[in-house]
């Protein structure tokens, strides 16, 4: 190709500017669209959203947040669970009858599909467990860094004996 000749140099810069302008416009349009979708594209509402603008009872929505520690209780029928979803700002009590996913535990994330009842309790038809971004093996759970270091030293000392 004749890219090395002087003739090829100027159109090359022209094309570069053209492509950069087009890319900037494109990224701008994409960011604008994403910004406009900010609320609509969210998969669920957090308790703070529910507190700020309570949805009409019976309207199908998704509620997401953390399961409050110590809040899970199982009703006498053994199928209905009651718990509280909170996001550090507001709390919403939830009731659900059915099989809960294996990862549904206190202090972990959850997404409930259903609607608000008349008494301010969220009635869920479906529960999804939300995993957090931490990956940790079981035996190290709850250990602080200092404890881990101690453990490591012990095992090293044990190996030396």
């Amino acid at each position: 190709m004749n890219a090395k000749t002087d003739r090829g140099l100027k159109p090359k810069h022209q094309r570069l500017v053209l492509v950069i302008v087009a890319l900037v416009a494109l990224v701008g349009a994409g960011l604008l669209a994403a910004y406009a979708l900010r609320n609509q594209a969210s998969y669920f509402y957090v308790p703070a959203d529910i507190a700020a603008s309570p949805p009409a009872p019976g309207q199908a929505i998704r509620l997401g947040g953390m399961v409050e520690n110590g809040s899970i209780t199982t009703a006498a029928d053994g199928v209905t669970v009651e718990f509280v979803v909170q996001d550090g700002v507001a709390r919403v009590p939830v009731t659900y009858a059915g099989i809960v996913p294996a990862l549904f535990v206190e202090g972990s994330g959850v997404v409930a599909e259903g609607s608000m009842g008349a008494d301010g309790t969220f009635v869920a038809d479906n529960l999804l467990a939300k995993h957090d971004e931490n990956y940790m093996p079981r035996e190290l759970e709850g250990m602080s860094t200092a404890e881990l270091r101690e453990e490591l030293q012990e095992s090293v000392a044990g190996a030396g004996e």
Partner: peptide
């Protein structure tokens, strides 16, 4: 009731 699937 908790779901118990065979993870493997």
């Amino acid at each position: 009731m908790r779901e118990a699937l065979d993870q493997w």
